[in-house]
Design a binder for these strands. Structure first.
Lengths: 258, 258
DNA sequence: GAGCTGGATG
DNA sequence: CATCCAGCTC
């Protein structure tokens, strides 16, 4: 059975609804995890997704942040506020689909390395690792995905020298992210692609057209699941369209038993 | 020579640019007078009009109000701030086109009959009449047009009983408008249409689709010019389109000598 | 209901 | 550059 999972920071689901629905119709993923939905649960356009046959789980708030997971398969064990200290930020949504746990995440941006927000970002990553260690093992069928707001390796940034020490590529956040990764994940995109690649390009200065971006959106899974992943790619075509998000969707395709 | 003049409250020229350009291409008026452009002169999209062969005169301000007149024929004697006491409101723009003076006007809304703004509205109308008396005579080729924000007669409102005494149809503003009219004007729309008709419909409560509106946009001329007017109508089709202004264009077609 | 501004975030 | 919101007007 084919199982297609997508992570996409949509930068407001209300501003992006038509584009997201187009994507679903054209790509027919089983699961789409969105970040930066920027809307309270009651105002989330649930019906539009239901009309396309998706079940909807949301963890949203008024102005910022917000995540949502939609799935053609049944969503069980929907949980939010399950680990992050700063519970007024809606940044995480856990769902179980078949026997696979999918944790949809929107990591803090961190603003700048000398700010409180940067500490919050680091804490978020370390707390996430603690949470996983407490509740899951490397044998579990676990996927964590989303906008992690950190480029982990040099091949994830357009200009290493320029980005060195800047937010999104600061040594401390890279270290935190690598420690999270070392919990036992496989970066599915890197399973198939070794070259420089990005998932986000600043709206300003025509960054996309100069391909000056960062790879900060990931789909990571435990090794047994990773073995079943047959492809993973970044769909840049949706960054090229009119009124795009600043992020492109990341797509992973699995071949599961049964 | 055919001479087509249009008055249209566009409710923001930046939000309405494409629709207005469509209108110009399809209808080829010689003159288009816009109200509620809601933009400073430097930010007015002048070039878009010039590309279609129009000369542009603007009297705009930051957030509110603002009028603009565009013409295929040369614009002479461009004047603003020529009568209204409250000069921080950009509500009037006088231009001379051939030998015809066109005064483009956006009357104050008046908010509610018991407010200061209502007094300002009444003053505006009486001052306008004084200005005309001082500088023009009924023999001149003069057009005044725009959003007058008052329905003059019962046939200009969808529900006389409901509107009686309300803003836009209050006895005092109707009296003021009739006094202005009695200076010597002809209401060109009424020269050709006697039945109930509207030029504005509230965005709310599906007013347009229920045809619950007001006729508050006018093209008035002195009698000699009125004799040369061969048609005058309200183009409701542009209220029916996507992202419309709440006002429809009013069109007057003249047949002039030479 | 639909504009605009100005401040905030990314 | 592109969101959202609050507060304002019409």
């Amino acid at each position: 059975m084919r199982f297609k999972v997508v992570s996409w920071n949509v930068n407001s689901i209300r501003a992006r609804l038509e584009l997201v629905l187009d994507f679903l119709k054209a790509n027919q993923p089983d699961v789409l995890c969105m970040q930066e939905t920027k809307v309270e649960n009651v105002l989330f356009p649930k019906e539009a997704f239901e009309e396309l046959g998706y079940n909807v789980a949301t963890a949203g708030q008024k102005r910022f942040n917000g995540v949502a997971t939609v799935s053609k398969l049944n969503l069980e064990d929907i949980k939010t506020d399950f680990f992050d200290a700063e519970k007024d930020h809606k940044r995480s949504l856990l769902t179980k689909i078949n026997d696979i746990t999918i944790i949809n995440l929107y990591f803090p941006n961190g603003q700048a390395p000398d700010t409180e927000q940067f500490q919050y970002k680091l804490n978020f990553i370390y707390e996430l690792k603690s949470f996983l260690s407490k509740h899951y093992s490397i044998e579990d069928k676990l996927i964590i995905l989303g906008d992690f707001n950190v480029a982990m390796e040099e091949n994830d940034v357009y200009d290493v020298k320029q980005m060195e020490g800047k937010i999104g590529f600061h040594p401390e956040e890279r270290k935190a992210l690598k420690e999270l990764y070392s919990w036992g994940f496989v970066d599915l995109f890197r399973k198939f692609n070794k070259e420089k690649a990005f998932s986000w390009w600043d709206y300003r200065a025509a960054s996309f057209w100069k391909d000056r971006g960062l790879r900060i959106d990931y789909i990571w899974s435990t090794p047994t699941l990773a073995d079943k992943c047959k492809d993973c790619f970044i769909d840049k075509s949706y960054r090229r369209k009119k009124k795009p998000s600043d992020h492109a969707p990341v797509v992973a395709v699995f071949e599961l038993e049964g």
